[in-house]
Write a protein that binds this DNA or RNA. Structure first.
Lengths: 243, 243
DNA sequence: ATTGACATATTGTCGGACAATATGTCAGCA
DNA sequence: TGCTGACATATTGTCCGACAATATGTCAAT
C-alpha cells in the first residue's frame, strides 16, 4: 500500500525570528566580537528590509539571553552572557520543573568538589589571597547570619573562579541562585559557622598545597554537611526549591 | 568631612522590561501554570496600559529563554523551558566565552559519571529497556559513523533521563550541543565503535544491577576514552570548541 | 456527519509619529 | 588655550493606526 504522502508542516518562520537568527549567528560565529556596537535599529531595518518594529522584536529575543545588552542605555552592544544572565535563565527553568533540593544537591555534589579539585591546579596567588581574605572575614562575621551567608557564597564562587574554567562557572551558575535562600535558612536554623569555617579552611589549605584529593574530599564533606543541615532543619530536602 | 551625597543613577527601566518582568514573575511564582494560555496581546496591552508593540517586545524577551512559546502558531502558551532551549542559551554563552574542549570535558567528567551513578538508583524497567534497545542498535550501526554518533548521544541522554533528575538534565544540556561535532570528529577519525559499545554495555549492566560504583567507573573510563580520542585525532583539546 | 461558505479573532508586519535623551558642533568667554 | 553653554542631530522608547494571513467558530446545505 502506497504511504499517503506526508507533507511536514511547512515551517514559515516569522520575520523577527529570521532576523534574530541572523544576528545571533553573526555573533556566535564570531563575525561580530563581544564588545562591538551593533548598527542602529534603523540601519538594521534597512539592511534586512523590514521595519524597525520587527528589528526591535528580534533584538529583544536575544537580549534576555544575555547576548545583547545596552552600552549606555542607547547603543546596542554585543555582550558575553555572564554567570548572572545564565544563572537567571537556568534557575528559572529549574524552578518551573519543580526541581527538588535533593536533585539540586546531587548536581552540586558533582560540581563543587570538582571545582575544589581543579582549583588546586590553576589558582593564582592573587586568587589564593582572595580566599585567605574571605576566611578572615568568615571568622569575623561568624555570628552574623546574613553576613555569614554572604561570605559562604563568596567562598564557593572564589573557588569556582580559581578553576579558570568558564564552562564550569556557567554550569554551576544556577546553583548559586537557587541554593541561596536554602543556605540562608540552614545558617539561621543551625548557626553552623564553626563547621563552615573548618571546611573552608581545609579546602583553602588543600588548594594552596595543590592537594587535589584533599580539596575534593573536603568540598564533599562540606556539601554533605549542607545536606544534613537542610534535613535537620526540616527544610524539606525532597521539596521543590523555592524561588 | 561629609561625604558628598552619591546619587546612584536612577534606574528608569523601559516599559517593555517592566511588563516582561511582571509576566515572568507571574509565571515562575506559579500564578500561571505551565501549559496555560496567556491573554491575547491586545488584552495584555489593555491590562498593562501600554500599546501592543510594547507588549510584543516584552513577550519576545521571554520567548527565547523558553518560558513562553506558541501553542498553534497563534495563542501564546506558558511552557517549561526544556533541555533544548536551555542547551541553546548556555552553549551559546560557552561559545562566546571561548570555552575549550578541556574545560568542557572537565565538566562532563563531573556530570556524566554522576548520571551513571544516579541512574542505578532510579532507572525504571522501561528505561532499562530503552537502553537495551539502544545497545542493539549500536551493534548494528557500528560501521556507520553518522548513525553511530546518533546512538552514542542517545545513550548518554537516556542514562541522564533515567536519573529522573531535572536539575542534572538541565545542567548537562549544553554538553550535548557542544560535544556533538567533536564526538562526530572522533568517531570519523578513529572508528571507535567497539570501544564505545563495550563501555556502554558495562554501564548498562551496572545500571541493571544497581551497581553505582561500576556505573560511575565505566562512565569515567568512557569519557577518558573520548578525551584520548580528541587528543589522538589532533582535534585540539586545548582549542575553543566550535559552534 | 461532512462539507463549504462566511464572519471573527489574533498574530505578524508595516508605516509614521513624537518625546526623551545622548552626542556632536560651534560660538563665546575667562 | 581651555572651558561653558546653546543648539542641531541621532537614537531609542513608546504610541497609534492599518492591513494581510491565518486559525476558530457558526451555520446552512448536502
Amino acid at each position: 500500500m502506497a504511504q499517503p504522502v506526508n507533507f511536514g508542516p511547512l515551517a514559515h518562520q516569522p520575520a523577527y525570528r529570521l532576523v534574530s537568527e541572523k544576528i545571533r549567528h553573526a555573533i556566535i560565529s564570531g563575525d561580530i566580537e563581544a564588545g562591538e556596537l551593533l548598527p542602529t535599529e534603523t540601519d538594521l531595518a534597512e539592511q534586512f528590509g523590514v521595519t524597525r518594529s520587527t528589528v526591535r522584536e528580534a533584538i529583544r529575543l536575544l537580549e534576555h539571553v544575555g547576548i545583547l545588552g545596552r552600552a549606555d542605555r542607547k547603543r546596542l552592544v554585543v555582550t558575553r552572557p555572564g554567570t548572572e544572565a545564565i544563572g537567571r535563565s537556568v534557575s528559572a527553568a529549574m524552578l518551573m520543573h519543580r526541581v527538588t533540593f535533593e536533585e539540586l544537591w546531587q548536581v552540586a555534589m558533582g560540581l563543587e568538589p570538582l571545582a575544589g579539585k581543579l582549583a588546586c591546579l590553576s589558582a593564582t596567588d592573587a586568587e589564593k589571597q582572595l580566599l585567605a581574605d574571605n576566611l578572615v572575614r568568615t571568622r569575623e562575621v561568624m555570628a552574623d547570619h546574613d553576613a555569614l551567608l554572604e561570605v559562604e557564597i563568596e567562598f564557593h564562587n572564589l573557588v569556582a573562579e580559581a578553576t579558570h574554567n568558564n564552562a564550569l562557572l556557567l554550569a554551576r551558575a544556577p546553583l548559586n541562585e537557587l541554593f541561596y535562600p536554602a543556605w540562608g535558612a540552614v545558617i539561621r536554623a543551625l548557626s553552623p559557622g564553626e563547621r563552615i569555617l573548618v571546611a573552608h579552611q581545609h579546602v583553602y589549605d588543600a588548594i594552596c598545597a595543590g592537594d587535589q584529593e584533599k580539596a575534593e574530599e573536603w568540598m564533599e564533606k562540606h556539601m554533605r554537611d549542607f545536606r544534613r543541615g537542610i534535613e535537620m532543619g526540616n527544610l524539606g530536602f525532597e521539596q521543590p526549591v523555592q524561588g
